[in-house]
Design a binder for these strands. Sequence first.
DNA 1: TAATTTTGCCTAACACTGTTACAAAAAGTA
DNA 2: TACTTTTTGTAACAGTGTTAGGCAAAATTA
Lengths: 216, 216
Amino acid sequence: MGITDRKLRQKEEVRASILDTAWEMVVTEGWHSFSIRKIADAIEYSVPVIYSHFENKDAILLEFNRKGFQLLSETMAEAKKGKEEPAEQIRAMGRAYWDFAFKNKEYYQLMFGLGIPTCETVSKIPAIASYSEEIIGSIIAMVEPGKKPSFDPFLKYQSFWSMLHGLVSINMSALGGRPDAGQKGGEHDGLPLQVLEDVMCSFIRGIQATETERKD
Amino acid sequence: MGITDRKLRQKEEVRASILDTAWEMVVTEGWHSFSIRKIADAIEYSVPVIYSHFENKDAILLEFNRKGFQLLSETMAEAKKGKEEPAEQIRAMGRAYWDFAFKNKEYYQLMFGLGIPTCETVSKIPAIASYSEEIIGSIIAMVEPGKKPSFDPFLKYQSFWSMLHGLVSINMSALGGRPDAGQKGGEHDGLPLQVLEDVMCSFIRGIQATETERKD
DNA sequence: TAATTTTGCCTAACACTGTTACAAAAAGTA
DNA sequence: TACTTTTTGTAACAGTGTTAGGCAAAATTA
């Protein structure tokens, strides 16, 4: 049956063109102009055709979310590969995370913007797991030799991610506090990268330090 | 002229009822149901009346933004007041920041959500300045005695804020990574607070450490 | 008091948005 | 060719932000 075969192929083409067109619009015009109707107009089909490929608007966003986390976790794995020392791996991943965020602003905003219902969709995106494992691996490797008691790698992972995410989103909203922060020469010049280094430094030093006691 | 006086008073009342009603709706139903028409309906006026008080929807949001930063900077000042040691001040402010975020989810989401055009509105909110000065003050006080060269308090401030913001927003989206993170018993139970302590610990230790050298 | 201006307010429209029911057209099958 | 199934478009529904125009009451003036 070559006919149903071709039909499937054509259907897949339409689906791809929906995603491609939508993405192009988001990149060139921003998330605010992400609209089913505009996509339909651009691919020269009527609106219901889109609904025959995706249940609703959120389903398209979920698809981009998937791609974003896939890309991020690949980026992290790639950054890790070059380095031997766990501390260097973490530094490289931190830098890679930063670069990913600013090279793929649209993905990052979708993935970590507060407005998006990530709560329920976490389970639908397996790449989140592989992304976090990439980091946790290095953290464990970094402390294994010393064999410290009461060391929670997941806690450290959350700290690390929090630091990175905060840094990125504050810089992405150009809300640094200094009036000249944000869009100047290139995209993020000088100080923010220094802050990134500073943050990673104290994180790594914090893990390498023997004790992690706290006075509550 | 008591008449124009009363008119001004009444106009002010309508304005206040717009803001009150809008806020109540946001708190009970979330940001998604923040709508000019719904507000008009609730205050029992027609839609254009709202436009006679606010230029547009963003103007109302800006108003809430102002209030949010006002509240945050007051919270920070209050937290600082109790402590003498700069390190303790910073820890207290970090904790206060965290509490503010989860006690005022709606404010926090508005203030630091990526979807909101904070870039242009920073200049319109003077409370942002007083908030950051509150933190920078303690950072400077903490290192002053030692008189370290090449120490940038603003860089440390950005690090600190980034860590806090990342921590909060990751926990707020219930995206911790562990399936049970987020909405369990109360609102944020156990681990996240440990992460907060962990993060503040390494931050303070990082400043207290004599050198801040990096190998690039 | 009567005429006139000003003010406050509402109806209704415009241009959008996501979503869907239904009918028409195209394609495949007999 | 006639029938059936699949694919597609039209048009509607229920929302959204925003604004133009008119009406009536209130305040000002004559």
